[in-house]
Design a protein around this nucleic acid. Structure first.
Lengths: 143, 143
DNA sequence: GTATCTGCAAAACATTTGCAATTCT
DNA sequence: AGAATTGCAAATGTTTTGCAGATAC
């Protein structure tokens, strides 16, 4: 409990620094993203949080995430084509989606821009890297 | 005109080889993707083709692209989070979206799987690489 | 007290599904 | 004839918008 309050307070500061006013809902939504790191959909966030905040609206989740996006608090991912997913880790990294267990793993990518010959003359601002395949634990269990 | 008929014939063969029966609509949709190489949305394809085929239905465009997907005739891209885009180039390559002119450029990526230390033990089946930034011609005109 | 934030209801899109008519073999 | 294809209309699902009440500064 105290942990949660402490965390809320830190998150509040973080959001303020990003230019977002830290309301209860916004703190909870960021907290969910920050603790779970599961690249959730709007629906996943809503279904979890509405249990503790019964009158939370899905509209608020949408509104909040759009504000977070605009203020660079979260990144929007296109992992599934139909539903947007969100990530509180805004540093450059790649995503790996296991086609079996559906888990999404993060992985490091280099920060050099010169690895791609074709892009020598391009200014690269954002990189979205998504691989699909089979993760080690699913590889093991399928043998 | 002759060119188009010839092209239709080639596309027909290509689709047959992929296990897709080459109807008029399917040929036209593939032809659009193949000629334009513009990673279009369903709506872009529909709006263009309905001019020549007035009773074309958007449902048919959806159906056709889903069949193409299943038979590995096209790749689905998640360049914008809200709308699916399609690409008749199924070979591995990356996409660069210019944030100014909105054009999407293709670029080559290496086929080695060992470039990412974190993924040594993962089986990688598909790679989706999307960069955003400014393309050379927009860089030039902004100076 | 004025701005902002929240949440309901409705609207706006993208996509899929059910089904009847048509087309191909 | 039988199977696949097309396209309309309706349904589904995600996201946005309008607006009234509540909250924060």
């Amino acid at each position: 409990m105290i942990k949660l309050i402490e965390k809320s307070f830190e998150i509040g500061e973080y959001l303020k620094n990003k230019g977002v006013r830290p309301s209860e809902q916004r703190i909870r939504i960021f907290e969910y993203l920050y603790i779970n790191k599961n690249h959730p959909t709007v629906d996943m966030i809503y279904r979890e949080l509405v249990q503790k905040m019964p009158c939370l609206s899905k509209t608020t989740v949408y509104n909040t995430l759009n504000i977070f996006l605009k203020n660079n608090v979260v990144r929007q991912l296109a992992i599934e084509e139909n539903e947007a997913r969100y990530d509180a880790v805004i540093e450059l990294h790649g995503h790996f989606k296991c086609e079996k267990c559906e888990n999404i793993y993060d992985f490091d990518i280099e920060k050099t821009n010169n690895e791609y010959e074709d892009l020598k003359k391009y200014e690269i601002n954002e990189k979205y890297i998504l691989f699909k395949g089979i993760c080690p634990s699913c590889l093991k269990s399928s043998k």
